[in-house]
Design a binder for these strands. Structure first.
Lengths: 339, 339
DNA sequence: TATAGAGTTGCATGCGAATGCAATATGAGA
DNA sequence: TCTCATATTGCATTCGCATGCAACTCTATA
């Protein structure tokens, strides 16, 4: 066991030089029909396949993309992982995955580790990068694309949905539905998605001459969202509508309302989320939400990444894809004349 | 941009040889305090970090583990990905992820690609490997561990839960609960988990002098499970209990029963799943199920993998971890004297 | 038939780090 | 202070493949 087949073995069997073998397996290199034939046959006989790592050493291209994810608990991210991985596979790239702890600082260590693997690019999903770190990536010539998060640093590419517009749509819908006391369950305050969605919501409310009635922080985490919901609905004059900064928290909120407090959704309280993860469509939740298409976001991410890899001097791009409102049954619907 | 720092740069700055630098960064190599100090200082100054790929070339160890997953739609797998990735990171390994199409054949291509990256080991979650392929891995000296799936090939290591026992527990619980017409929503027939869970269920029923009342195939897929549930409950004399081969299908079944057919769970029909994914605990489902601990399965997988990597001649191991029954509210509970 | 031009091929080298070996430095014991 | 065992160090080589360069083989044109 363990006898590696190298290009030299193939070369010997085919009666050609090692370079010839290399050229046969290098797209764009020149080789005669006869040589190709001989090499292919020998390679097949020996079961030879080029060593990607060795190839990476000399070419400087590893064809690996580092993916940093903080938590797969929010089912938007498994979707991202799956689709990103598939999309990159189609481009001949593969994904090296790194789980970052929720703790903000650790991301930097993780990125260092990623860089050690000589990845050709990095996708950072739902995590922030220190400016020092992004500088290192730039120095190393490794493009970085933030996914579902933005940062002030203009030199970082980023793909998000249009969170501000999305938040505004929620406000408009709730106002049109005649809600009076609108609460907001915030995500982790450090996240741009959180800030933007809240900002959009507030702007939308203001434009209707209203303002936020209640606000609690759920940090995008299940347990925290649960506590947040309990706090928000503890007193009397409870909100008649809640916008949760993502679907994952919206489910928790619905569960608290229905199963702990015995309230009806949307009868007593309307609930709206953000993301439109698959579960949102399940009838048990039937969650009204804002659709953030993982497919489209991944497609944009891959596109940007490929551009940046091919043309390292290209400008970073920041994209906010359209986030359509998705009406379902968890929020009271505006009357016929509404909206 | 792009000026790579190599060990040679560090060596020059520190006034030592390249080998000295290498030794400082190689655990277990010998170097004097003074040298270590000089090298560390120079490395820090230049921001040097060893190139993992170059290291892999000469050492033959890439410290990468290939992970093959078919679909993240079933939320058991995101858990696996997250925990496996973290556990391996702690061991100094990293995960190269590969999505396999559901189609059975493609897995072989994917494994070839993985091998190209010189991974030190492969974890195949919920996918089967052709015998030819596993032979190649063996020839290449790359250990393979199947996760949540077994195969006849004795030379393959595998970690599953005790699916047969789990299935039997479900049968016993349903019988104890006084159910008369027990249906089964099967998973994909090619999966060992499917076969074992069904086998356990049937054995359990037989031991109680009963047999399966209805059976439909859901293929572990959402859409198929939906159709399966509809078919199963189309006629009169419908089942009074259903065991779905995994939680993911159980949720679909519950939704069909409750929201399409207007039946009560567990009032009219008891539903039991398998896996105990996080959603099973959500009050909207409160699913009675069999607990298959991703944490424990991942721990075993890592342990086997590390053993196999350190000692390539070690025997493959096949482990079925205990799968405790988890009683919740989606199935009628046996009376006090029951069970 | 001679010959420029394009298409092939092999040689030699390099990517960045680990390691066997031999040379040297260090320290302990006498 | 001298000797020998042990710890450090550098040299040179190696991992598997890609690629610049020079030598070479064709083929088409004059």
């Amino acid at each position: 066991m363990g006898e590696k087949i190298t290009s030299l073995d193939v070369a010997r069997l085919a009666g050609v030089s090692q370079s010839a073998v290399s050229r046969v397996f290098t797209p764009g290199a020149s080789a005669s029909k006869k040589t190709i034939e001989k090499v292919r046959r020998a390679a097949a006989e020996l079961g030879y396949r080029p060593n990607v790592l060795a190839r990476a050493m000399v070419s400087g291209k590893s064809r690996m993309i580092g993916l940093v994810v903080a938590y797969l608990e929010n089912y938007f991210y498994p979707e991202v992982v799956e689709k990103l991985s598939k999309a990159l596979q189609e481009q001949g790239y593969h994904v090296l995955i790194f789980m970052a702890s929720q703790t903000a600082e650790n991301i930097d260590d993780v990125v260092e580790e990623i860089l050690d693997y000589q990845v050709d690019g990095i996708v950072a999903a739902s995590v922030a990068m220190g400016s020092e770190l992004s500088a290192r990536c730039r120095a190393a010539g490794v493009p970085v694309v933030l996914l579902n998060r933005t940062q002030d640093d203009e030199r970082l590419s980023a793909v998000t949905s249009d969170n501000v517009a999305g938040g505004r749509k929620v406000a408009e819908y709730l106002v049109a539905g005649g809600h009076e006391r609108i609460g907001y369950i915030a995500g982790w305050e450090g996240a741009s998605t959180q800030r933007d969605r809240e900002f959009g919501l507030r702007v939308g409310l203001e434009m209707a001459g209203k303002s936020l009635y209640a606000r609690e922080v759920g940090d995008f985490r299940e347990a925290r969202a649960q506590e947040a919901a309990r706090r928000m609905f503890a007193g009397r004059d409870r909100p008649d509508a809640v916008f949760a900064a993502n679907d994952h928290m919206a489910f928790v909120v619905m569960d608290v309302l229905r199963y702990e407090l015995g309230l009806s959704v949307p009868g007593d309280v309307s609930v709206i989320g953000y993301d439109d993860v698959p579960i949102a469509a399940w009838p048990a939740y039937d969650l009204t939400t804002v659709r953030q298409s993982a497919t489209r976001m991944v497609a944009e991410t891959v596109s940007i990444l490929m551009d940046l890899i091919e043309n390292p001097s290209a400008d970073p791009r920041r994209i906010a894809i359209d986030a359509p409102f998705k009406e379902r049954g968890s929020a009271r619907k505006p009357g016929r004349q509404g909206q």
